[in-house]
């Protein structure tokens, strides 16, 4: 009997803890954008190359073409 009350109070405290952490995460905006963070973590910074690859051939069409 006593043990049930103890267990219930422990479980309630834990559950309330999770509820509060959810409310906090909501408040801090973690659910505002669910897409960008998922791809952001996959981006990597490439090391700067030693030499800049220069475009070799010049454009064939004339540059003064206007739309």
């Amino acid at each position: 009997m006593g043990i049930i009350i103890l267990l219930i109070s422990i479980s309630l405290v834990i559950a309330v803890g999770f509820l509060l952490s959810f409310l906090w995460s909501m408040k801090s905006g973690q659910f505002d954008d669910t897409y960008s963070p998922s791809v952001r973590m996959l981006f990597e910074d490439k090391p700067e190359p030693e030499h800049q690859p220069e475009p070799e051939s010049q454009p064939e069409s004339a540059n003064d073409e206007k739309k």
Binding site: P55, E56, S57, P59, E60, S61, N63, E65
Partner: peptide, 8 residues
């Protein structure tokens, strides 16, 4: 429609 090339 009218291509401007740079490198390839």
């Amino acid at each position: 429609e009218d291509i401007t090339w740079l490198s390839d």
